[in-house]
């Protein structure tokens, strides 16, 4: 069997190596290479990021001591306590604002509003993502700092950053509730669930992991943002004691640290240490997102087929 030599030549339509018009159609070079080309491209893409992390860490870690995160800044040096606490406080307030506006907005467009209204809100949210964040900062300055008279404060920075984060939470929520399979809704309603029972007992357990993912992603984006809070608060040496006192923040500290660094080298080190901490927070939030996504994927496996 299988003596190829001497076998009659195959007609083009029977030849596995030719297409219908008789052209040779083996695996192309691209077909062969794609398996290692894509990982290579990926490496090229993340190389600058790895380099950046290394670059920051190598400048931040050699002079890193615990006292840096337990003491407040003094002059151009000292510790980083007030920017760390300030960043977390601003982020907390901003997250609450973004959940209040984004989560309930997303719920409304996905579940309750008519198509036209929902469509208009979706477009608005997409436009909001595209607005340069410094313009949002200006808006926060005019409305909260000046018009509401909050002054440069934790409240003004938190609310402005919250508005910045809102469309991210909104889009995650809207999509999460929209992607609950229609047959699941039918089954719930067909079992006699009221609209609220459907929402709490069926839709939310399915949608919530995606919503949570959206919230943490919005936090990861928001915590590193400088422009929205630049005009709404000011770097200070101590954490605020009320909503209406200014709160420092890591991005602001980095920014002013490099300015001061022109005069005082130790300020540069602190700025790198602040940058390193910020990276840790952002990476931590992203890892959290991965964990939630993986766990919910396991729980909801087989639902969206």
């Amino acid at each position: 069997m299988g003596a190829v030599t001497g076998a009659p030549p195959l007609a083009a339509e029977d030849d596995l190596r030719r297409d219908r018009s008789g052209h040779l159609r083996g695996r192309t070079v691209l077909d062969r290479c794609i398996g290692w080309l894509l990982p290579l491209l990926f490496l090229v893409a993340i190389a600058p990021i790895l380099d950046l992390v290394y670059w920051v860490a190598s400048r931040a870690l050699p002079t890193f001591t615990l006292s840096i995160i337990t003491t407040n800044p003094s002059g151009a040096a000292g510790g980083l306590l007030s920017p760390i606490v300030g960043s977390l406080e601003i982020l907390l307030l901003a997250t609450l604002v973004a959940i209040a506006l984004g989560f309930f907005g997303g719920l409304a467009t996905a579940e309750y509003l008519d198509e036209e209204t929902a469509g208009a809100i979706r477009v608005t949210a997409n436009v909001m993502v595209g607005i340069p964040s410094i313009i949002l900062g200006l808006f926060g300055f005019i409305v909260f700092v000046k018009y509401f008279g909050w002054g440069a404060s934790l409240a003004a920075a938190g609310v402005t950053l919250g508005i910045f984060m809102t469309p991210y939470v909104y889009r995650a929520t809207d999509l999460a509730y929209l992607s609950v399979p229609p047959h699941i809704r039918e089954a719930a309603v067909g079992s006699g669930a009221t609209p609220l029972q459907y929402l709490f007992r069926v839709a939310t357990p399915i949608a919530f992991p995606s919503v949570l993912t959206g919230i943490f992603l919005a936090m990861a984006i928001g915590v590193g943002e400088t422009a929205p809070i630049l005009l709404a608060t000011t770097p200070v040496a101590i954490p605020p004691l009320s909503l209406f006192q200014p709160a420092s923040a890591l991005p602001l500290y980095i920014w002013s640290g490099f300015e001061n660094g022109l005069i005082l080298p130790v300020a540069i080190h602190r700025a790198f240490q602040a940058a390193f901490l910020l990276l840790v927070i952002v990476v931590g939030l992203n890892v959290l997102v991965r964990i939630i996504a993986a766990r919910s994927r396991r729980r909801l496996e087989g639902l969206f087929q």
Binding site: A187, A188, S191, Q197, R201, L303
Partner: peptide, 30 residues
């Protein structure tokens, strides 16, 4: 209330992403 009195089963299985027990208990929890 009408839907609670007349049970309905659909063309495709429509189980919820919960335990076997909780799926069967769904209508009673309502």
């Amino acid at each position: 209330v009408v839907r609670r009195r007349m049970g309905m089963v659909f063309q495709r299985p429509t189980v919820f992403p919960a335990s076997v027990f909780e799926n069967a208990a769904f209508g009673l929890r309502l």
